[in-house]
Design a binder for these strands. Sequence first.
DNA 1: ATGAAAGCGCTAACAG
DNA 2: CTGTTAGCGCTTTCAT
Lengths: 371, 371
Amino acid sequence: MATMQDVARLAQVSVSTVSYVLTGARPISQATRDKVLAAMAELDYQPNAMARGLASRRSRILGLLLPMDERGLGATETAFVTGAAAAASVAGYHLVLSPIGVGDLDELRRLASQRMLDGALLMEVQLHDPRVDVLRELGLPLVLIGRTADTTDLSYVDIDFDQTVEEAVGHLVALGHRRIVYVNHSAGTIAEGYGPATRTRDAFTIAMTGHGLEPLMIPAEDSAAGGRTALATALRQAPDLTAIIAMNENAVFGLLGELGGRGLSVPDDVSVVSMVTSPQVAELATPALTAMNSPGSALGRIAIETLLRHVDNANGEIHQQLLPCALQVRGSSGPPRTGSNTAGNTGADGDEPTVPSTEAARRRAATRRRA
Amino acid sequence: MATMQDVARLAQVSVSTVSYVLTGARPISQATRDKVLAAMAELDYQPNAMARGLASRRSRILGLLLPMDERGLGATETAFVTGAAAAASVAGYHLVLSPIGVGDLDELRRLASQRMLDGALLMEVQLHDPRVDVLRELGLPLVLIGRTADTTDLSYVDIDFDQTVEEAVGHLVALGHRRIVYVNHSAGTIAEGYGPATRTRDAFTIAMTGHGLEPLMIPAEDSAAGGRTALATALRQAPDLTAIIAMNENAVFGLLGELGGRGLSVPDDVSVVSMVTSPQVAELATPALTAMNSPGSALGRIAIETLLRHVDNANGEIHQQLLPCALQVRGSSGPPRTGSNTAGNTGADGDEPTVPSTEAARRRAATRRRA
DNA sequence: ATGAAAGCGCTAACAG
DNA sequence: CTGTTAGCGCTTTCAT
């Protein structure tokens, strides 16, 4: 394993010169640089990460603090992780995933105090997240994925729930739906103030009211069973519902199962739009779910870029950014059976000029099936 | 940030003494140890990871080389990761997840040459995995999750596919099924020699033949659409099939959707058993899937323990271990409609003494729904 | 534009 | 059982 000494000797320069061509921290003549580079290549030199870290007080490691509950990473989170890892790699950093939740504060304190991390990304942020306090106290740069109650002086990236909900509602209203039910996370989760749940709740209320419609909402446990129960409740409270927007990625499957069990067809009897869902999960359902695709990968990239800016610049600009989920129409949404088009659905080809997106979705679904 | 010097001064001992109480590499009198420990606590001392790594030539970081394809981590992989991270943490190590696939050999070489890793776990191992060569060349301890074609001198942990398939088949045969179709990964994947696909194929052949039955197999693309196609093919080739074993976690959802679409009920018309599936995913389906639960967490723990043994003991024992998936009966499997019990299904309570597991499953499912 | 040298904070001989 | 000390391989002043 060649060291910098070896390179310096072979290139006939001092070690500091080698170091400087590596870090670019001071100008080096082209001739010298070439000599050094040649020597490095010759020796297959790779700088020792530990030595570099010790001397520079920079590990070039970023932490991704990710509470892995029993349920594990959904495709959405995975996209985020992948995007973040790629962005870190491009910048010459490594990304350590640490399954550290709000419970493991000591573990977090240890990790951060060991000076092993140059900065951290916090996922699954809670309204009052003690991890934030710990990290700030230790002076570790951090970026939130999500938002705490008070975001003063805190950089974050998050999903733009307002816009996402608005688009989901808009899609269904444009199709002709009037009775739309929103299936949220559980009542407990909402009461806790879980951001995605409360923000979408408020956004749904505003969006529906804006369309002159009643904002019907049902909570659901995060499970298939929760979805089944929620559907039953929804049908009791609004027997005439024609569409459902589901925030709860787990519940939505139970919900679909229960719809099928009751002989209700999707999307003819009930349209379903799933929120913050990855394409992979959306495609698992039959029919594939019209969904608001989470911008996981982009969020990850932006989060890392923001974090690195803080690392390089101890007191850099605070950066707070929201990204909306993009509507992707698939087979689970269509015009209501009894809507503006009272003629009824005689077939998949009943052209409905005002809703071209549904048509497009059908065609896409058909294509997929052939593939 | 207190250093070892500070601790030594406060405790009135030498730095080496402090170091030794930390590493336990040599006996320290109880009195001295207490003094040192007190000083550490007093100063809130945490060893500097970089300095320790440089001096000891040990980063205390293990790499988990995990190709994150577009599909992301399933719950199975997540359980593995969580199990591994926990085991590493217990041993005082950190686990770095690096999304390094067989393509990023340079990235891998860089990571390993920087001496940032003490060892590596390889996931998604291919039959001829170049990553193995790179790591061996660099002398980095490694443990495979899965198996290469030649496993000489290589430690690995993997799923015991033979036993898993045998149990799945046994479960269905015990219920009275005779026409069982195995839905595998795609033909291309099988042709490539992908271990899980070829091993289960062979195991299925043996298991079915052992029961005097014909081993019917259908390949399926890794998607819901693939599952739909596969079901169509299966019904064409074996119109009298009563049960399906699905290796393909993605296809199984399309398969279920298509069954529903054709008016076939699960499990009354067709029983479905999903292979190597996590409980979380199994519960998404309606009815919940009888599945072979992958021992993800245990695999992760054992892999780390094995790896650490290699790290501590450069040329330690090779450890090769297989773990079977455990059968978990849920709602998607039951006796065939036309089977040994020709009386027909008059209800869920038609006691079938030879198949108590199905009864248990029904009761469990009912309980779950109430929860 | 380059070199010399002083550490970074810890471990692990080597001495008692 | 404890102390002394020489590095680990690199970065970064301070010189020139």
